[in-house]
Each structure stands twice: as C-alpha cells, then as structure tokens.
Design a protein around this nucleic acid. Structure first.
Lengths: 335, 335
DNA sequence: CTGAAAGCGCTAACAT
DNA sequence: ATGTTAGCGCTTTCAG
C-alpha cells in the first residue's frame, strides 16, 4: 500500500496535520520539524494525493482544453502553447477533440465541469442555441481560442481574421489580379465567415463584381484544396491567383497545380493563411498570413488564469497581431 | 452553490444513497424511483462530482500521457489515436511533453501518480538510470509508446524500426546505390539506434564498407535536414540517395536539394521514415516507411487498459506492422 | 508552533 | 428496494 500522511505522522510522532503543513511549506512550522518530516516522507516514498487535496480545497489545478483536432498542425501548435504555459503555472491539461461536433463540445464541457477543472479553453462552433445556453450558464471561467461564439461577448482570443484577409486580397488586387479563386473554410465557424468577409470587402473596395464560381466552400482539409482546384481547372474556370482559408487548402492547391502543369507563381499565384510550420518547406514555399499559434495558446492560458484567480474580472475579447509573409508562391512586385 | 446529491435527496425525500444509485443506474432501484430522481436531478441542474467519486472508489478514469512534443506531426497523430480510443472507453487524457528531458519525464511520472491517473502512456528516453529505477518501482500500469527503455522488458509498443530501415536501405542498394547519405536521429532514443542499425546491417549484407562521412547525426528536426544536406553538398561529399531517420529530415533535405539545383529523384533520391500525413503533398511526394501512428495510439490505450483492468497480466512487447511506400522522391524501377 | 476535530461529496458495506 | 453508517486522504477551522 502507498504511504499516507498518517503513516508519516505515526513514524515521526507528529500529528497528521503537522505533516500536511510541513509538506506544503506552511509558515508556522519550525524549520527543524519541516526538514525532519520531509526527510521521512522521502524515505518512505510518500507521494502526495492531489485528488484528496483537490476535494478539500475545491480546486484541481487542471484546465480542460476542448480542441477541434489536436493532430491538425494549427491546433497542435496552439495546444502546445497551452500546455507549456499551463505547466509554468503549475496546471495540467485535460485534452479532448470535438471534430466540430456541437454535441460533443457540449458533452465535453459538462464532463470537464464534473471533473472539476478550474477553467475551460474551447475551440468552439459558431452558432448553436444549445451550446450558447450552456456557456451562458457556465459556472467556471472559460475562454474561446481563436474563434467567436455568436451571442457571447468578451470571451474570445482572436487573430485578425477579417483584417488579414482584407489585406491579403487587397494586396493581390493591387498586384493586378482580377479573377481570384477563393477556397473558403467550413461553415459554422467564425473564422470562415470573418476571412471570407475580408476577401469580399477587398473585392468591393476595388469595385470588382463577385463571380460566385470563384468561391468554393470546403471544410478546410488539404485534400479539398487538391480536389477543388482540380475541379475548377476541369470546369475551365479562369483565375490568376488562389487565396485560401488556410495553408492546408493552399498545399492541396499547390499539388493540383503542379500535376496540371501550372507553374506557381508564374501561371498562378497561391496565398495561404495560418503560416503552419511546414509551409516554408513547401515547393514553392507558401506565402501566407502568420497567425501566432503558440502565442495564442499562451495568451489563452494567461487570460483564463486571470479569470480563475479573480472571478469578478470582466471578460474582454483579445485580437492578436498577425502579419503577411511573402514567399515563393506569389510574385512579389515590391509593393 | 452547485446542486449536490444531498439536495436531490432532500427534494425527493429519498436517501442520499438511493440518489447515488439511481444516478449510476444501479440495478436494485425501482424504475419509477430512478426516473423520478433523474428528472429531479436534471431539473436542479445536478452535475456529478467525479473528483469525489474517484476518491471513494480509487480510480480516476484518467490516463496520463507523457509525449515528446505533441505539436510534432508524428506524435500529434499518435496522441490523437490515444485520445480517441481513451474517449471510447470513458477515459480522459492528461497530456504533457518532455522535449526529451529525462528530468521532466521523471517529474511528470510522479506528478501523474500524485494525480492518481489509472495508467501511464510514455514516450520515454532510452537510457537513464534514475528513470529506470522509477519505472521499475512504479505502482501503476504503464506502456511505452513507440520506444524501448533499456532495462525494461515487455512494456513497449514498437513499429519495426530495425526491420523497416533494413528493408529501405536494402531496396536502395538493390537499386544500385552505393553512396547513401544517412541522416540519423537523436541519441538516447531507441528508434534512432534501431533504425541506424538497420541501415548499417543493409550495408554489411551488401558488403559495402561504411564511410563515416555519410552518417550525419541530428536531433530529427526539419531544419537539420536542410542544414545537414547543405553542409554535405558544400563539403563535396558524394552521394546518390539520402535516407533519413524521419520524414521531417527528408523534407528539409528536399528543400536543400532544390535550392542547390539537384533534381529529385533524377540526381538524388530521398527516402523518409514515418509517413507523416503531409509527406504525400511534398513536391516531389516523399517515399517513406508508413508507421501506423494513429493505430499506435489506439493500441497503446488498448494495451494499457488491459493492464488497468487486470493488474496481474504479464507485459509483452508489441511490434506493429509497417510498410514501404514508394512515391516521387525515388526512382522506382519495379523491383 | 502544534494538535484535535470536522468535513469536502461521494460510494460501498451492511442492515432492514 | 431503500436507508444507515462509515470512510476515501487530505486541508481547514479552531484551540491551545
């Protein structure tokens, strides 16, 4: 059987309480007693029981992380930032994935509440009445990572989706492009809407009429980038640049273009979004929007912990800085 | 304040125990009572306290996962398999990363024991006396994922590192290669040794003398693949193929070759290891060894749960099947 | 500075 | 089928 505090108490002759205090570095314990008890605890192979402690003091030092798909390179890096920062603050992370399933998202929130996590970091769907109610009535601190939820203000950490895509599309227009293929992201996701709206705004600003055949909706998977561009080429849709909801789509697009004998960037230019780590190693390397993924995870933990420590603190949306990165998949005319 | 079982007991007139039973679907409760209690619980917004339950029944339904780096695409996929399978069995996952730091590995094992996880899945370092002792004395079930630990038998799920690299290098030799650059993996990691040994064995089988300048040691990062090949080219080292510890190194190598005007596979062929999801989208697409990453995570959970359920079960190493995948980065002469 | 007692919320064992 | 009692291992009062 494992060594317990009462065993140490018995072995040292102190009360169980004094043992508890000594092991926790509580002030009002003489240095000699503390060292004596700690030495004995080590010798006996004592391992603190966090569960029992949590139960008593009603905090678990665990945060629940509800991601979309932790093997997606975007979220993998965000989650890494979360884990790293949480660790620095003495917290651990329970991690689950929703695959964009609203029901699963809801179940996990409840599960984590039942597991008494101290706070929740969620990559949420955009619109879901039931989930909205859940969040509104949620009794523990929570932040949304990289996304907004319709009907809930202040809980999101964002990354200038609208502004960045507006900048990208405006840049491409300034470079002479008029027929721009846009590979859009999954529905029911605030980023998709925000990025698409940025693109549409750029067209509007330039007085370019929208050709609906130039917008292709996808779920953001790399294969869809490949298939969508294949399809567009087969249908004879003309375009001089492809700008994408994310880098994965852009990578799929690159493959299709290559297989169809289109040279990038000479014949067609390609712009991504996210700046995945691997994007710089594509051939050609991918022009994209750098989203601070690791920093997003770090900031999310910081923000969450602020609310865990001060439950009365008001929530405010944060919008992290992005920047455009021009690489080999675009002709960069020095604008 | 949150609703507790005693509140439901009071509200329904049943004892707290009956409430507990009804909510857990315990047999010996009449259907009417159960439904009545459940309805009341829902109405009162009751959320089960898993911590308190765990404490009582001494199991947490949580497994601890100690990865190397969950944002590395290899481990990201393994971890995804773990999460998915754990969920199917009603378990959650606490996830941390070691960055190959033996001290951190040790600290996390202790941390997870103190958090009373039911079992441990670890991506461990190979040789470390202190960690060896720790695992030998560990009182909870544990499995090593994709790696061996020197001095501990039976706890590993592996993937034919030696056999696969032997096959790859033999294939390349059969294709006429004599000067093969090998980008080796990090030290203190069983995979690195196993894969390198496979390569060396192939050379030996073919009676090819080892040229030490053709073995370059790395930590397996993509940038090192790039830098190592740059260096080899600058030094005028001759080789007709690069075979790599992992796909990331191979990707870095592809970039260097491209920048140095070497055509792949015409001038130099490249072979990876792992078959990362992204590898098929490289230009050219990467020939590699398919390691069943997701399945590795799944099997690891299955194996761990078997030992959680039957503590007396003997441990046995498992060696998952791999297969060679020939893509555009090698000339495939139909052997 | 140390000890005694109470209790966190739940479940298991036993009794009815 | 339901209730009573005890206790998981720890921390937090409150006393001294």
């Amino acid at each position: 059987m494992n060594t317990l505090m009462k065993d140490i108490a018995q072995a040292t002759g102190f009360s169980i309480n004094t043992v508890s205090r000594a092991l926790r570095d509580d002030r009002k314990i003489s240095k000699r007693t503390r060292e004596l008890i700690r030495a004995k605890a080590d010798a006996m192979g004592y391992i603190h029981n966090a569960i029992a402690a949590n139960m008593r003091c009603l905090q678990s030092k665990v945060i629940g992380v509800i991601s979309k798909d932790s093997s997606n390179p975007f979220f993998a890096e965000v989650v890494r930032g979360i884990e790293e920062r949480a660790r620095e603050h003495g917290y651990n992370m329970l991690l689950v994935n929703t695959e964009e399933d609203a029901q699963r998202e809801r179940d996990y929130v409840r599960l984590f509440v039942s597991r008494h996590v101290d706070g929740l970091l969620v990559v949420p769907g955009y619109q879901c009445q039931e989930n909205l109610q859940l969040y509104k009535s949620l009794s523990i601190p929570f932040c949304f990572v990289g996304r907004r939820v319709q009907g809930i203000e202040g809980h999101s950490l964002l990354h200038q989706d609208y502004e960045s895509q507006l900048e990208v599309s405006s840049y491409l227009i300034a470079n002479g492009h008029r027929r721009m293929l846009y590979l859009a992201g999954p529905e029911n996701l605030s980023n998709s809407a925000d990025r698409l709206n940025g693109h549409l705004k750029a067209l509007e600003n330039a007085g370019i009429a929208l050709d609906p055949s130039l917008i292709i909706h996808t779920r953001g998977h790399i294969e869809e980038g490949y298939a969508s561009v294949n399809l567009a080429l087969n249908r004879g849709i003309r375009f001089s640049v492809i700008t994408c909801f994310n880098d994965l789509l852009a990578m799929g697009a690159l493959k299709s273009l290559s297989e169809n004998g289109c040279q990038v960037p000479k014949d067609v230019e390609v712009f991504g979004f996210d700046n995945l780590y691997i994007s710089q190693f594509m051939q050609p390397s991918l022009s994209t929007v750098d989203v601070p993924k690791f920093a997003l995870g770090v900031s999310a933990v910081d923000e969450l912990l602020r609310h865990i420590e001060r439950r009365d603190l008001e929530y405010k949306d944060l919008n992290l800085e992005t920047r455009l990165i021009y690489r080999g998949s675009t002709l960069n005319r020095g604008l």
